[in-house]
Write a protein that binds this DNA or RNA. Structure first.
Lengths: 207, 207
DNA sequence: CACTATACATAACAGCGTTATGTATAGTGC
DNA sequence: GCACTATACATAACGCTGTTATGTATAGTG
């Protein structure tokens, strides 16, 4: 019936907003569209307003996180994989600190809440695999252990990206996960080795 | 030489701002001073602008947290006390969710960063006490264990107040702390009992 | 007691997100 | 293939924001 939207404009705006967050420029309607050739109205046709842009940006943050987690190898050692997922989670947060920050802002309203659930589910599935492999005790509650890992990971990610903890504090995640997985039934020595191997994904110094 | 500031005005503005955060009214200069009899300029004389008000509010948040932690009993059971500190941390976050949120905003700039350090130090001291009492292994790094506890507590607090986790998920903090303290050397059965006793400070349902 | 530095009200300003209005254009029914 | 219309989008105005310039009443000081 009429003109159709140009998807290129949408991703251009998203890309530019993410870029401005990264360089810590204040993101306003006018600064966002400056130099793009489009007017402020484009933000309304594509996102329904600035709030919609933030929501889309949060979605983008979860998409990048999901991509990171999906890129983690699935090996025969599920406990290693679990630690690798934790490390990947932290890498994503440290590499996109501003995106990560806004992901959990504003009462956590998303267009697709499933994007956030997916984070937890990838952990749950790996816990189930570790249990099936006999690494964790048979009665292990996968959701509980996944939630604990997520909370710990998010705590580290949040405190490091916000400032109160230095990047080096992330190293304390290794013994924490080891304690958690050992309590779930894994044999201590083997657990330590698996976690250390999974954690190797995390660079030793901040990027 | 001249007129002096009225401290009552300062705390009135702080109190009202905290109240408005709680009731989710938008906090703007004009809405803040509306009905107080003072003008917007008061915010500038007392806080140097709205940014200064937020900083003061963050400081207030840490003060309330410190008061909560200080109110935790010191008993003969240092591991119980450690869990009680964790529970008190979560109670503070859940009772002042908006204050808690802004505490870790804006790059964590505070007038007195010591206020935040005090949180960690109360944990460190209690870990040291538990080690001295023989509950934790002699080589235990108090800062490491305190940091891990803080990260886990902050992770739960943040995910619950932001929305992705329900209040009931806080119960998963018990086995997490137990795993952490057991890995530090505490005897499992005794540890579980101590943590459970300390955790009793936390109401079973959201306030 | 006169002086002056300060608290604070009033009012103006630039910039914000949003909305009303106008127009060019891409897709559709004939 | 053409008239029609719904849509994308520019332009401009609106009410609000935080901030600042200006003026004044007043509390503390020599």
């Amino acid at each position: 019936m009429a003109r159709t939207k140009d998807p290129a404009v949408r991703s251009l705006l998203l890309e530019r907003a993410a870029q401005m967050l990264r360089t810590r420029e204040p993101v306003t309607l006018r600064t966002l569209v400056a130099g793009t050739g489009v007017s402020t109205m484009a933000v309304y046709t594509y996102f329904g307003g600035l709030d919609g842009l933030w929501r889309a940006l949060r979605q983008e943050g979860f998409a990048r996180l999901a991509a990171r987690l999906a890129a983690v190898d699935t090996t025969a050692d599920a406990v290693r994989d679990l630690a690798a997922l934790g490390a990947a989670y932290l890498v994503n947060a440290v590499e996109n600190p501003d995106l990560y920050r806004i992901m959990f802002d504003a009462g956590f309203d998303l267009d697709d809440p499933g994007a956030a659930d997916e984070t937890l589910h990838s952990l749950v599935r790996t816990v189930e695999r570790a249990t099936a492999d006999g690494r964790f005790a048979a009665g292990t509650d996968p959701l509980e252990l996944a939630t604990q890992s997520w909370a710990a990971g998010h705590g580290f990610a949040s405190l490091v990206t916000a400032g109160p903890l230095p990047y080096a504090a992330l190293a304390h995640g290794v013994p924490l996960l080891t304690a958690l997985f050992t309590a779930a039934g894994d044999e201590p020595g083997r657990c330590r080795a698996s976690v250390a191997r999974g954690w190797a994904e995390l660079p030793a110094t901040a990027p």
